[in-house]
């Protein structure tokens, strides 16, 4: 009854993460999985690209040409996106948001290279969500005064009546969970759809699944990357609030 819910021709459908190497780590059984492999490939690709980009910029000319053009275009577009969302707080977050954007984008579209996208594993997206969570609350405690934070956490009711406090804390905790689940579920559903098409249709799925790849890998992946970065930026600017500029001058 191992294949109770599989269709009859479904032996070739493969959407799960597979363990490759097992080792023991402080008494726990830990697996190196296919996610690690595709993550390493993506990271190696990005490192090669960034070394090449750094070399192109260092040798750059006043009038850009060739590869330098591409690098400058990418950086300009990312900086423009961050500027338009975060306003005057943008400068500090060029590096973080840009890095996260490029990493998630390349991870999402790595399905085109035949990898299982690393972001289709909850172990990759949850840390990204937790990083956002930490950044939000770091900025909140840095730029806002404690009484203001307390007032906001009790928000619909007056500050001396903290009945609403647990609800607000739950909604704070829900932010990284929903961020990471959104990214994970989108990419996973794309992966499952592609695996179903290739697994069930057999020889019939030859050229036309390219159109599905454009939707599930390119379009969906790019939109989810954009949404993740956009929401991260919005939450961070909300946490900084009005205090940002005043705290910098003081």
């Amino acid at each position: 009854m191992e294949h109770g819910i599989w269709l009859t021709a479904a032996d070739s459908i493969d959407v799960m993460v597979h363990g490759l190497v097992k080792y023991h780590f402080f008494g726990h059984e830990v697996w190196l999985t296919t996610t690690h492999v595709s993550l390493l490939i993506v990271v190696a690709l990005l490192i090669c690209f960034s070394i090449a980009a750094g070399r192109a910029i260092r040798k750059g000319t006043e009038v850009p040409s060739g590869f330098q053009n591409v690098v400058e275009l990418i950086v300009e577009k990312l900086d423009g996106m961050i500027d338009s969302t975060m306003g005057r707080n943008a400068k500090k977050y060029y590096n973080y948001i840009g890095t996260v954007f490029i990493f998630i984008l390349v991870s999402n579209i790595s399905g085109l290279m035949g990898l299982r996208p690393p972001t289709a594993d909850y172990g990759v997206t949850l840390p990204l969500g937790i990083l956002t969570f930490l950044l939000i609350h770091y900025n909140e405690f840095r730029y806002q005064k404690l009484p203001d934070i307390w007032k906001e956490k009790c928000s619909p009711l007056p500050p001396w009546l903290p009945i609403w406090l647990p609800i607000n804390i739950i909604s704070d905790v829900a932010v990284p969970v929903s961020l990471s689940l959104r990214l994970f579920a989108n990419i996973l559903s794309g992966t499952i759809m592609m695996a179903l098409v290739y697994g069930l249709l057999g020889w019939f799925a030859t050229i036309w699944p390219a159109a599905l790849h454009v939707y599930f890998d390119l379009f969906s992946g790019a939109i989810q990357t954009y949404v993740f970065c956009m929401l991260t930026m919005t939450y961070i600017s909300n946490a900084i609030g009005d205090g940002g500029e005043a705290a910098k001058e003081a």
Partner: peptide, 25 residues
Amino acid sequence: LLGQAVAETTGLYGLLVAILLLFVK
């Protein structure tokens, strides 16, 4: 697109429940 992606989340939760029921059993 941003608003639609946020609205999509609830549907994705349903999808996740379905995937968990089918694959994780």
